[in-house]
Design a binder for these strands. Structure first.
Lengths: 156, 156
DNA sequence: AAATGTACTTGCAAAATGCAAGTGAAATTT
DNA sequence: AAATTTCACTTGCATTTTGCAAGTACATTT
């Protein structure tokens, strides 16, 4: 599977990488669901096929959006985390969530999260970005491993 | 081609409709390039295959994102325009452009447009939305038919 | 009336996706 | 320490989607 650049348009070029039904769901899982392993991703509600999952993780790694690291607590697992390039997709994902909230039939839990985004996107963006960056430091184990389904927002 | 909903997540549900390499390019063309006909879309730099184009226009119509109308100036053409639901995708598209601008190799023209978005997203959003809504009124012919490649922004 | 423009449709090959069943190393259970 | 289970994939194959080239039908132009 090869990625070909179709034009020099930013929309087209971004879709060359992310324009499929699965890539953004993996990013969503890391970004908002506290997921970090192959097994975590495989268990999501959308039931991605394992070969597709392996393929997308490889492509997202090659694209510099996720990084594959040794898992800090088990040699049997790998730990996938977002790079800065991946974290920078958060505003895009938030707009996807806002549009989805407005026009699609979604869960009550998702509506609550959308409302938080609508209320103060900038603050939530910053808070969640900080959390994701902690996955890139020693603080990881303490703060972020327990998954937060609807991430609580700190006022401080 | 049937759309199946994979879960009640807003990201997943949005991708069920827009998660492919072509749909958002058609929306981009209407939204930012002043394109409105099948022939316009077929001529874009990415060279979409005509069968795919016909299929996506049908799906976007079914999804309520675009509307197919008689062309005001020719019985040989149809006029595709965005619905409110489609216009509401503008913030999402703008974030795609901003991310693409930051990380992809794109044209100078696109970089200029990205800079306009970065400078005052809210104002540009409003100005362009107004223009798109004019396609839905009698004012259409006067204001919007000439395509604006890098849309000029009015200060008033 | 003939040529061209416009919006598609059709047929077929190639590629991507989806499903089920493996594989091998690490962790856990017995 | 042997057996079982967990984990991260890989493989094979059927189905679906995409891409390409050519064709069709109606509208407009010449």
């Amino acid at each position: 599977m090869k990625i070909r650049k179709r034009s020099d348009c930013p929309v087209s070029s971004t879709l060359d990488i992310l324009g499929d039904k699965w890539s953004l769901l993996i990013i969503r899982d890391i970004m908002f669901q506290g997921k970090n392993t192959y097994g975590d991703f495989a268990q999501s509600a959308e039931k991605i096929a394992t070969n597709i999952l392996a393929d997308r993780l490889m492509l997202l790694d090659e694209a510099g959006i996720v990084e594959k690291k040794d898992h800090p607590e088990s040699k049997a697992k790998f730990y996938y985390r977002l790079t800065e390039k991946g974290i920078d997709l958060m505003p895009l994902l938030m707009e996807v969530i806002l549009w989805g909230d407005k026009y699609m039939d979604i869960s009550a839990e998702a509506r609550i999260f959308a409302r938080q985004i609508r209320k103060d996107k900038g603050r939530l963006l910053k808070a969640l970005s900080v959390d994701l960056r902690k996955q890139r430091t020693k603080e990881r184990a303490r703060t972020s491993l327990p998954a937060t389904k609807a991430p609580r927002t700190r006022t401080t």
